[in-house]
Write a protein that binds this DNA or RNA. Structure first.
Lengths: 335, 335
DNA sequence: CTGAAAGCGCTAACAG
DNA sequence: CTGTTAGCGCTTTCAG
């Protein structure tokens, strides 16, 4: 592995000149040419570690996501990756596993590795803590999940509006008892989606107590969705439709329905977020489409601005969802 | 951000002592205690960039996978991650997108960032090139896909055996015309799985020419699987069963079958590798289970040995698959 | 436009 | 067991 001084010696110039050639400093054309030539011959490429140490900043950004097995987050990750590639930033993907400790460990690493910045889909609304990064001036962008009171830029989905619309759709189609399976109580996404559901149900005339009885919190995973659905089906007066607040829990809910011999659309089911391999599900599922990829792109753009030193006031970008009605919510008569 | 000298000064010791405290050198208990104390107060954590520059090795390893949206690779990634966490290595995930250029770019980054080592599921058997890393002494472990002639450790799945067994299972169940959808011609996994299929078919008495006519190469993605299945169904004498060489193509094949109104198990279908959300598919799918997670763990273990400086001869670890017969291959009579 | 020199923060000999 | 010292490879003043 040749170094900058090897190149300098071989080209008969100073290391500083070589450095300038690779960093856009002013160097005479012929020297530039010679240095490039020699560098190519020697297979030289600048050592980023040394550069980071010297400049105190890296060309790597961290992306913390809570579940690498959820297609929503992989799509988001691709958005971040694609947008970053254009700026020559490389992306380090960290899977926090919905675990605040693990997340904290990765945030420490980001700090110790002097990463240029971090994009986080926070594991917990209350307990995720970015203050250490913020204090040391490392740019942070929150994505998908809004951490409480953290002073960072954010890119969010319009959860409440999307859920409200989705729930209203179920009501419109004639379902009488629309239940809700939402995520863990700590997460902003859970709460906002629940709030949308509640708003729509109140508007449809449901009492708060009734709503509470037909609401379940689960873990945003398949398993949790299944269990919650089983509980709802076991109610004295079971629901005839369900609004499920994320994709994986919908998969679980579908399993529970199948086991119970309940078939959409006589039982309505609507998923907030695309269900993976939706094409395998019959009947086709009504979903609220989330702009996962664009969320990633927007977050990366915001982060890049900050890395470049922008001191605009903090922004929150909100992206809209889109309701895709399909057969799974055709109506209780099973049209 | 406090440095090692800040801590040294505040604790009244030398920087070397602080360093030793954090790296397991011999330091008297009371000093160790004091240093730890002071470090905690100052919120000190060692700067990994400086450490890497000094020691010429990093505590980061790269993991290059061809498709982050394939659950097989995410499971593999988790294996790598879990195994690495125990050794305090952090994992950088790079999505090569089955693209040799993109892969090469990431490999360059690995080099420039002085990563401790790299685990690669190669994008191409022929064109993926690790020689630059090997030359510079960076440990590389190939996983899942065997790059041609590269002198690296490898962790593989017993593709040929698994495919042979799977195909024989279809034949045993009474299917007469078993077709095959395999992956791109370049990949070792495609070729080995195809070889297993061929061996079983020959043993069942099929002519080479017949086998060729009932074989399709696709791209390991959903789309490719669908197209290939459509082609097979359009043959003058369509197959009555198919062996599909990866999970995503199976999803595509199922879509094509559904559109054509063909239902397993009267048409047999068997997937090499677990199909995501298999529980949504009806009837339940017969699969060859792959040890994706363990593949990751084994690769990480091998890499760690090399990073630690082992100069054992190169090894190839082969993990076995397991056939899980389910209803989708119950037999042409549709028992 | 170019070179010399001074570190970034850390670790690894080497002496003590 | 502890401190001193000399860099890892690079960038960035500061002179020239």
């Amino acid at each position: 592995m040749s170094t900058i001084s090897d190149v300098a010696r071989a080209a008969g110039v100073s290391p500083a000149t070589v450095s300038r050639v690779f960093n856009g400093g002013r160097v005479s054309p012929e020297r530039t040419e010679r240095v490039r030539q020699v560098a190519a011959e020697l297979g030289f490429s600048p050592n980023r570690v040394a550069r980071s140490l010297r400049t105190q900043r890296a060309s790597v950004i961290g992306l913390m996501i809570p579940d690498i097995e959820n297609p929503f987050f992989t799509a988001l990750a691709r958005g971040v990756e694609d947008a970053s590639q254009r700026t020559n930033l490389s992306v380090v993907l960290c899977n926090t596993d919905e675990d605040v400790e693990k997340e904290a460990r990765y945030l420490d690493i980001a700090l110790a590795e002097q990463m240029a910045g971090v994009i986080v889909a926070a594991a917990s609304r209350r307990r995720s803590d970015f203050s250490a990064l913020a204090e040391r001036g490392m740019p942070v962008v929150a994505v998908d999940r809004r951490p409480r009171a953290a002073m960072v830029d954010a890119v969010m989905v319009d959860n409440q509006h999307g859920s409200d619309e989705a729930t209203a759709h179920l009501v419109d189609r004639g379902y009488q008892r629309v239940a809700c399976i939402t995520g863990p109580a700590g997460a902003s996404t859970s709460e906002e989606r629940l709030a949308g559901y509640r708003a729509a149900m109140r508007e449809a005339g449901a009492a708060d107590e009734w709503i509470r009885a037909y609401t379940r919190h689960a873990d945003f995973r398949v398993e949790g969705g299944r269990t919650a659905m089983e509980e709802l089906l076991a109610l004295p007066e079971p629901p005839d439709a369900v609004f499920v607040a994320n994709n994986l829990m919908t998969v679980g809910a579908l399993q529970a329905l199948r086991v119970a011999g309940v078939e959409p659309p006589s039982f309505g089911i609507l998923s907030f977020g695309d269900v993976p391999w939706a094409s395998l599900v019959r009947p086709p599922l009504t979903t609220v489409q989330l702009p996962a990829y664009d969320l990633g792109v927007a977050a990366a753009a915001l982060l890049q601005e900050r890395i470049a030193g922008s001191d605009k006031p903090l922004q929150t970008v909100v992206l809209r969802t889109a309701l895709r009605p399909r057969a799974s919510t055709a109506g209780p008569e099973g049209e």
